[in-house]
Structure formats: structure tokens, C-alpha cells
Amino acid sequence: MSWADRAAPIIAEVLRQNDRTDLPTIRKALAAAYPWGARQNRPYKAWLSEIRRQLGHPLNAPKLDIENGQIDMFNETQKG
């Protein structure tokens, strides 16, 4: 089991118990819930990564290029 796998249910529980719109409160609750002693090395990096993933951080969102016309090639409504 990876560090992220261990962190996921803890972070999910904290997010479930708090209002997602109140980020300062969420950050404090997540800091208090950190389970592995010193905040350093791989466990802490996995913890932060899992927080970003569960909060829907913009860097984790798929990239979409609006100017890319290749997607339209497969659209049925534009075939003529």
C-alpha cells in the first residue's frame, strides 16, 4: 500500500466533515489530521499530492486546447 493510498481515506473524511468552500478551515483540519510525524520526505509529498487530487487542483485537470480543430473531425454533426 502506497503513502497516497493510506492518506486517501483520511483526507476524504476531513473533506467530508468540512465545507469545501471554506479553504482556511479545510487546510487547518488537514494539517491537524496528518498522521505521520514529521512533515518531510515521501509521506508528506504523497499527503500533499493526495490533497491536491481530492480538492480538484487545476494542475490535475486535463488540458483542453480550445483552438485545436482536430476534435471536430470526429463530430458527427459537422460531416457534410
Results as ranks from 00 to 15, higher is better:
residue 48 L to N: 15
residue 18 N to L: 01
residue 41 N to F: 05
residue 78 Q to R: 15
residue 60 N to W: 11
residue 19 D to T: 13
residue 6 R to P: 01
residue 54 Q to H: 04
residue 77 T to E: 13
residue 63 K to S: 12
residue 23 L to A: 07
residue 77 T to N: 11
residue 9 P to R: 06
residue 61 A to Q: 15
residue 6 R to V: 04
residue 69 G to F: 08
residue 63 K to W: 15
residue 59 L to R: 15
residue 15 L to K: 10
residue 47 W to D: 07
residue 10 I to N: 10
residue 44 Y to K: 02
residue 51 I to L: 03
residue 7 A to C: 15
residue 7 A to Q: 07
residue 27 R to Q: 11
residue 51 I to E: 03
residue 43 P to H: 00
residue 37 G to R: 13
residue 5 D to M: 13
residue 62 P to A: 07
residue 54 Q to R: 06
residue 58 P to R: 12
residue 14 V to Y: 02
residue 24 P to T: 11
residue 5 D to F: 11
residue 21 T to H: 14
residue 54 Q to S: 13
residue 23 L to Q: 15
residue 61 A to W: 09
residue 46 A to S: 15
residue 36 W to A: 03
residue 54 Q to M: 11
residue 24 P to N: 09
residue 64 L to C: 05
residue 64 L to A: 11
residue 12 A to F: 05
residue 14 V to W: 01
residue 45 K to N: 14
residue 69 G to W: 09
residue 19 D to M: 02
residue 50 E to D: 02
residue 48 L to E: 08
residue 48 L to S: 10
residue 2 S to M: 05
residue 73 M to T: 14
residue 63 K to A: 13
residue 31 A to T: 04
residue 57 H to P: 01
residue 23 L to S: 07
residue 58 P to G: 00
residue 11 I to Q: 11
residue 22 D to C: 04
residue 65 D to I: 06
residue 74 F to D: 14
residue 27 R to H: 01
residue 47 W to Y: 10
residue 12 A to H: 04
residue 66 I to N: 10
residue 20 R to D: 04
residue 44 Y to S: 01
residue 21 T to E: 15
residue 59 L to P: 00
residue 68 N to D: 15
residue 34 Y to L: 05
residue 4 A to C: 00
residue 28 K to N: 09
residue 32 A to E: 09
residue 61 A to D: 15
residue 58 P to I: 03
residue 2 S to Q: 03
residue 20 R to M: 11
residue 2 S to E: 09
residue 17 Q to G: 00
residue 22 D to T: 03
residue 36 W to P: 13
residue 25 T to D: 06
residue 37 G to A: 06
residue 76 E to K: 13
residue 5 D to T: 12
residue 21 T to V: 09
residue 80 G to W: 03
residue 29 A to R: 08
residue 55 L to D: 02
residue 46 A to R: 01
